[in-house]
């Protein structure tokens, strides 16, 4: 290694300025340029940018939780299904009779509870994360269908306070985007400034070292999945606000988008390395692609192909970076 000095703390604070995020920022700018060139009139409008952010908000909150789990060396496939279950549970007639606050608390509790079950199965039942959360994916979706009788549950006008999250705007931006931003900031703080975050890197990067250093890795693993579930609960509130409904079909395949965003953002699937900022940039890239394809009236199938290519290219580029950085 001939690099004279490590990344200075100041630079690290900025995050965006770090070399490892530079590629993502460049990709984002390139996509924006493509948008400007192809559909200037529609792309550069406030309403389009707001719609991109609104679209990104729900998966974005899930992505924050997924980043923790993946840095901690695990995987959570159940996020979309858990969010759907939380949205259904919070919009049953029984829950709705208690008003909007109880509905929101319900969504968060259901999400956290499902995450806790994942965590217990993985940390103490010693199930492989892939299997435990796959089971939760299937089961949570089934439970959501049973509770809702496969019907879409509308939010009653009495509880429109939840819908206000998407309709009320502050400085032209819906409240739910602020919630998304708040979750991202909190996620960043927890990951970078607390013992919990530091231990997440340790548990994912070298579980043996973490254990020998006296960290309770089982309890930590359990908490990581509970955190992911908690984020799914928040995401359920956002999707209820956006669609005015709770439904067992919400969040289909969100797990794939969330995991893809995390990977594009430079987090290793093997754990121990990654950033919240990277994940969010990865997610914005994905959302921007969707937006560009829609604006240009292109086929959704082509959009999927483009996303697949981006995942592969991103990982190949990162691997080259890793090699260069190795001592």
């Amino acid at each position: 290694m001939s690099k004279p000095a490590a990344i200075s703390p100041r630079n690290r604070l900025a995050g965006l300025g770090e070399a490892r995020h530079l590629g993502l920022v460049v990709a984002l700018v390139l996509l924006a340029v493509v948008g400007l060139v192809t559909k200037f009139d529609n792309f550069a409008t406030t309403s389009n940018i707001v719609s991109i952010l609104t679209l990104a908000a729900t998966i974005g909150v899930i992505t924050v939780g997924a980043t923790f789990v993946i840095i901690g060396g695990g995987i959570d496939l159940s996020v979309g299904a858990v969010m759907a279950l939380a949205s259904v549970w919070a919009t049953t007639l029984a829950t709705q009779s208690y008003g909007p606050w109880v509905m929101m608390i319900c969504a968060v509790l259901v999400g956290t509870g499902a995450g806790l079950v994942n965590g217990l199965l993985i940390a103490y039942g010693r199930l492989v994360p892939f299997i435990a959360t796959l089971a939760m994916l299937v089961a949570a979706r089934g439970l959501a269908q049973r509770m809702s009788d496969r019907k879409t549950q509308l939010i009653q006008t009495d509880n429109s306070a939840i819908v206000d999250l998407s309709t009320t705007r502050l400085l032209g931006i819906p409240l739910l985007v602020y919630i998304f931003a708040l979750v991202v900031v909190l996620g960043w703080v927890v990951l970078n400034r607390t013992t919990f975050g530091r231990r997440t890197y340790a548990v994912g990067g070298n579980p043996e070292a973490a254990r020998l250093a006296g960290i309770n890795i089982r309890r930590h693993t359990m908490l990581l999945y509970a955190l992911s579930g908690f984020c799914c609960g928040i995401a359920a509130i956002l999707i209820m606000a956006r669609t005015t409904t709770g439904s067992s079909t919400h969040g289909d395949l969100y797990e794939l988008d969330a995991i893809a965003a995390v990977i594009i953002g430079g987090t290793l699937l093997t754990g121990g390395r990654g950033t919240i900022i990277g994940s969010i940039l990865g997610l914005l890239i994905f959302t921007l692609i969707t937006n560009l394809f829609i604006l240009n009236g292109l086929n959704t199938s082509d959009q999927l192909i483009a996303k697949g290519l981006i995942i592969v290219v991103a990982v190949l580029l990162q691997r080259r970076n890793l090699k260069e950085r190795a001592p």
Partner: peptide, 22 residues
């Protein structure tokens, strides 16, 4: 394999065993 967090800084590696103290 058993002691180091290779991707982390020297500081993070040193304080790993006594984080609550900080």
């Amino acid at each position: 394999a058993q002691a180091l967090l290779l991707d982390q800084s020297v500081t993070a590696n040193i304080t790993l065993g006594s984080l609550p103290g900080f």
